[in-house]
């Protein structure tokens, strides 16, 4: 395999008393769509800002396309595109003018800038609105224009920092299809998101950040497989809760969680000891437990996320209780 397009070694960054990044390691191979997941404050945005040459790290090294982000910032800038958390476009001019101006600032020249702007407007379904002021655009249109602006130079590496935060479902799907299209064209994409379904749909690798470190880095499928199978038993009566709990504890080797209100017992099976449904039903029957519903399901990325980032999981449990 060729050298990674993004290579991060021991990266550290502290803002005042906050340690945003704490010895982060990350490799993203060419052509990958890497999803960065993590709770708020995990360091996702700081990492993107360092890679986009906007912030200098305190410790460690980060390379994009082989260029070190501090010393060789100019070379990095020529290789990247950035779409941040805001639609970074000028509202007082038209969508077309925004793209043409940025094209000129990318030194494409007036003619090429105009041609490329027209191309991108068509690609992102903004042709009709191209000559209207951006002030009148919807949130989704602004974000599409912003994404288009990050692609003017057909960058080798694209950083998307929460590209769909605050968008309605339809606009999100539009952004998603645009990102997938880019990936098929061979761009390397580093995407931060709070939406796990977004990472699941777009990313072929996921890095989970927690308190400035990577706590997991794998494909979505393997991340889900690694936390085992979720077992849920729903009972008709409160009386059986304790017995069901005992059965699940033995079968999964873990501590089951009881939701008394829903009369539901849940547990995560040990990935090393796969649990089959017939066995679960037999054991429950043997213990004299009558179940209303018995389910085994593959964990979602939500479950992966909560299992890996302890603090977030605790919050979730509190909220549920």
């Amino acid at each position: 395999m060729s050298d990674p397009v993004i290579a991060v070694r021991g990266l550290g960054k502290t803002f005042g008393a906050t340690r945003a990044l704490d010895g982060l390691e990350l490799d993203v191979p060419e052509g990958a769509v890497c999803g960065l997941l993590g709770p708020n404050g995990a360091g996702k945005t700081t990492l993107v800002r360092i890679l986009a040459t906007l912030v200098r790290p305190d410790r460690g090294e980060a390379r994009v396309c082989g260029h070190e982000v501090g010393r060789e910032a100019a070379a990095v800038r020529r290789a990247i595109g950035l779409a941040g958390q805001y639609a970074a476009v000028e509202e007082g001019i038209t969508g077309r003018e925004n793209l043409e101006l940025l094209g000129r600032l990318h030194h494409l020249g007036a003619v090429k800038a105009r041609a490329r702007a027209a191309e991108l407007l068509a690609e992102f379904g903004l042709e009709e609105a191209a000559d209207r002021l951006v002030r009148g655009y919807s949130g989704g249109m602004r974000r599409r224009l912003d994404l288009a602006a990050s692609l003017l130079t057909r960058p080798r590496v694209l950083f998307l920092d929460e590209p769909t935060t605050g968008l309605d479902p339809r606009s999100r799907r539009e952004i998603w299809s645009a990102v997938r299209e880019l990936a098929t064209q061979g761009s390397t994409v580093l995407l931060t998101t709070q939406y796990l379904d977004e990472a699941d749909r777009l990313a072929d690798r996921i890095t989970v950040l927690d308190r400035g470190r990577a706590v997991a880095d794998d494909t979505p499928q393997r991340l889900k497989a690694a936390i085992g199978t979720l077992v849920e038993v729903t009972l008709p009566e409160d009386a059986d809760l304790e017995r069901a709990c005992a059965v699940l504890a033995v079968l999964t080797g873990g501590a089951p969680a009881v939701d008394a209100g829903q009369r539901r017992v849940g547990a995560v099976s040990d990935p090393a000891r796969p649990l089959a449904l017939p066995r679960l039903v037999r054991e429950l029957d043997a213990a004299g437990v009558v179940a209303l519903d018995v389910a085994l399901r593959t964990p979602s990325l939500d479950d992966v996320f909560l299992a890996l980032t302890g603090a977030g999981a605790a919050e979730k449990t509190e909220a549920a209780a």
Binding site: R49, A52, T53, L54, A74, R77, R78, I80, L82, G84, Q85, Y86, A87, A88, V89, E90, L102, L105, H106, H107, A149, S150
Partner: peptide
């Protein structure tokens, strides 16, 4: 505040020129 400066800074442009 709206990220326009960030975008420009992530590009290879002359800040003084801008």
């Amino acid at each position: 505040g709206r990220g326009v400066t960030d975008r420009l800074r992530s590009m290879s442009v002359s800040r003084f020129g801008l």
